[in-house]
Amino acid sequence: MEIRELAGRLGVVPTKRLGQNFVHDPNTVRRIVAAADLSEADVVLEVGPGLGSLTLGLLPAARHVHAVEIDPVLAGALPATAVRHAGPAADRLRVHRADALRIAAADLDPAPTALVANLPYNVAVPVVLHLLAELPTLRRGLVMVQKEVADRLVAGPGSRVYGVPSVKLAWYATARAAGRVPPNVFWPVPNVDSGLVAFTRHDPPRGGVPRERVFAVIDAAFAQRRKTLRAALAGWAGGPDRAAAALVAAGVDPTARGESLTVEQFAAIAASAPAGASGAQ
C-alpha cells in the first residue's frame, strides 16, 4: 500500500497537533507484528492506525482488531482500505472514531488482550497508562514511541531517566526495550528515532493500597526530584517530619531520592501515609 498516494486521495496532510507520523516501510510493519507475538485468539487494540499500514499487518495475525482513530477522515477511510488490501481478514476489523484517552472497557467488544500501536508522540505515556487502568483484560503490549519516551518507560531505579512514567508503568507491567526504529520508515520523517517497548501485565504490588494513593506519592516524589524524599513528600504528608515518619515506617531512608525507589517501595510509603496525607482515603 502506498500511503502517500492514499493520503493524497483523501486530502490528508499529517499534523503535529495529532502527532501524525505514518509508517510506510513494510519490513517495519512485519517486525512489529512479529515482536508482538500474537496468537490467533488475541484481540488487538491499535491506537492511531492512521492510513492503516500497521492495521493491515495485524489483521491476519489476530482474531479481532479494534482500531481507535481520532481523525474522522482517517477513521472513515480505514474500513475500505482493509477491504481493498486485507481480503477476508477485513471482517476482523472494527474502527472506533474516538479519543483513546476516553476509551473505556464498555466501548470494546470483544475485550482486547493486547495493545499494539504506533502511538502519537505527544500522548504516548498518558495513552498507555490510561488503557492499562481502564482495560484489565490487556495482558501485554508492544508500542512504538519516541526513543526518549521509550527509554523512560523501561528505565529502572537509579537511571537518570527513571521517573513518573517508569514507576507508573511498573505498577501495571514489566516493560523492556524491544528495539530502535529509524526515522526514515515514517512519513513525514521525524527528527528523532523511535523505540519499541514491550510490556507484560503483572499483579500490582502487595499490600492492597489503592493505585491513586500510590500515584500521589510518586507524583510528589518526582515533582522535586533533586530533593530528598523527606523534603519532596512534605506537602503530601503535611510536613517534613510527618513525611520522615512515613518513610521510616515503610523502611525507606528519608534522605533517599525518588529516583532510587522501586514501585514496591512507593506502595509501602503510601501504605504508611499519615492521616490527612494527599491522596489518602
Rank of each mutant, 00 (worst) to 15 (best):
E5R: 15
G8V: 05
L10Y: 08
V12D: 01
K16M: 11
R17G: 11
G19C: 12
Q20Y: 08
Q20M: 10
P26C: 02
P26T: 09
R30G: 10
I32S: 00
I32C: 04
D37I: 02
S39Y: 09
A41W: 10
L45I: 04
V47Q: 02
G50F: 00
S53P: 02
G57V: 08
G57K: 00
L59W: 02
A61Q: 08
R63M: 12
R63A: 12
A67M: 07
A67Q: 03
V73H: 01
G76D: 03
G76K: 03
P79G: 09
A80M: 09
T81L: 05
V83Q: 07
V83A: 10
R84V: 06
R84K: 13
H96K: 06
A98D: 09
D99T: 08
A100V: 01
A100W: 02
L101Y: 09
R102G: 13
I103Q: 07
L108F: 13
D109K: 06
A111M: 05
A114D: 03
N118L: 12
L119I: 11
Y121C: 07
N122W: 11
V123H: 12
A124K: 10
V125L: 11
V128C: 00
L129F: 11
L131T: 01
P136H: 02
G141W: 04
G141V: 02
Q146A: 14
K147F: 15
A150F: 09
A150Y: 05
V154L: 04
V154C: 03
G158R: 13
Y162W: 09
P165R: 06
S166A: 14
W171D: 06
Y172G: 00
A173H: 07
T174Q: 09
R176Y: 04
G179L: 07
G179I: 05
R180S: 15
V181K: 00
P182I: 08
V185C: 03
V185K: 01
P188E: 00
V192D: 07
V197W: 03
F199L: 07
R201E: 01
D203T: 12
R206E: 11
G207E: 14
G208T: 13
V209K: 04
R211S: 12
V214D: 06
V214I: 15
F215H: 10
A216L: 11
D219N: 13
D219M: 14
D219L: 13
F222S: 09
Q224H: 14
Q224E: 15
R225L: 15
R225D: 13
R225W: 14
R226V: 12
K227S: 11
L229E: 00
R230G: 14
R230Y: 07
A232R: 05
G235W: 08
W236S: 07
W236L: 13
W236V: 06
A237D: 04
G239Q: 10
G239Y: 06
A244W: 03
A246P: 02
A246R: 00
A246C: 06
L247D: 00
A250C: 14
G251T: 13
V252G: 02
V252T: 02
D253K: 10
T255C: 15
A256V: 12
R257L: 10
G258H: 05
E259G: 11
A268Y: 11
I269D: 03
I269G: 01
G279C: 01
